[in-house]
Simulated assay, not measured.
Amino acid sequence: MGFRTDISERQRRFGDELRRLRNAAGLSAAEIGDVLGMKGPAVSHTEAGRLGLNLERLNLWLDACGVSDPNFRASMVTMCQSNGKGWWTEYRSHVVPGALDLAEFEAAGTAFSNYQTHLIPGLLQTRAYSEVIHEFADKKVEFRVRRQQVIIAENAPPFHAVIHEAALHMMYGGPAVMRDQLNHLIDMARLPRVTIQILPFDCTVYASTDTPFMLVHGPHSRLDTVVLENPHGSTYLGDPEGVAAFRRKFDRIKGMALPPLDPGAPGPSPSLRDSWGMIQHVRYKLLGR
């Protein structure tokens, strides 16, 4: 098998997990290679995602590293055998590789924890809002809309979004687009497994809330992944300590945010300041524009 020239984030993450398991077991690349019938350099290339691994060798690797958790073993088998193809494959020539990686991770996700600062989360955007963000690039907008199926499909995994109040005030596309976008947030909050909170401007606690991120919960907690957004694309974080830090960060942010949006409530309550009231307040101000 030849070396891969384009390594997906799933393939990279699979290799990282193999390396972490080997290091935790105190085995060198040469030692695990002896178990698998591979040379040390081939082991290193496998851990870097440049080489694949067949199922027999994967099971030998897991056995040698003392992995007994059946759920984790099954999740590693799934990652190993995946061909990386899905609905997103048809957009390969229209979006950046990082977007394809995100769609693949979302397809395997069991829950999502998303924090956004100046944008409405992608999975909650209207088409008109997304058109402005993507500068009316039809295929990119279509791709964004297709991604949203992951949280609106039957038996969709839980999706919890905390949105900074700043995102509600950005006039992307103008007042009409933003009014529709705020209405859409209310509609999405009616879905049984969608939770939306607003982090207000007047929050008095600092919790490093300047970086947007999404925690994609994997089929096993050891395979949770943090996707960090930056001007040059997305960065994927999978090391246990880093992921745990972002779990704590999201827990803290949602604790600082207003109570979740509840469209079933009779209306904003003067005695309770919540996300529903915040969105209604911003929406009311937009009516005069």
Rank of each mutant, 00 (worst) to 15 (best):
T225P: 09
G267Y: 00
P200W: 12
S234P: 00
R252W: 12
L258R: 04
V216C: 14
Y206H: 11
P240A: 10
V227I: 15
L261F: 03
G242Q: 02
F213I: 06
S271N: 04
G233N: 13
K254C: 05
I253S: 01
Y206F: 14
H217N: 08
D210I: 09
S271A: 06
Y236P: 01
M214F: 12
L215G: 10
V205E: 13
F201Q: 14
L272I: 13
A245R: 06
D239K: 13
T204A: 15
P219N: 10
Y236E: 01
T209R: 03
V205S: 07
S221C: 00
G218D: 03
E229R: 06
G218T: 03
S221H: 08
H217M: 12
T225C: 14
T209Y: 01
G255N: 06
D262Y: 03
T211Y: 11
P212S: 07
L223P: 10
R252N: 11
P268F: 02
Y236A: 01
I253L: 14
H217I: 11
R247I: 01
D239Q: 14
H232E: 09
F201W: 15
P268H: 03
R252C: 13
P260R: 11
F213Q: 11
S208N: 14
V216Y: 13
G267L: 02
D262P: 03
L261Q: 05
L261H: 06
D210C: 06
P263K: 04
L199R: 05
N230D: 14
L228T: 09
I253E: 02
T211W: 12
D202P: 04
D262V: 02
L228A: 15
Y236K: 00
S208R: 11
A244L: 00
C203N: 15
F246G: 02
L261N: 03
T235P: 00
V216E: 10
G233E: 10
P260W: 04
C203H: 14
H220R: 02
L228V: 15
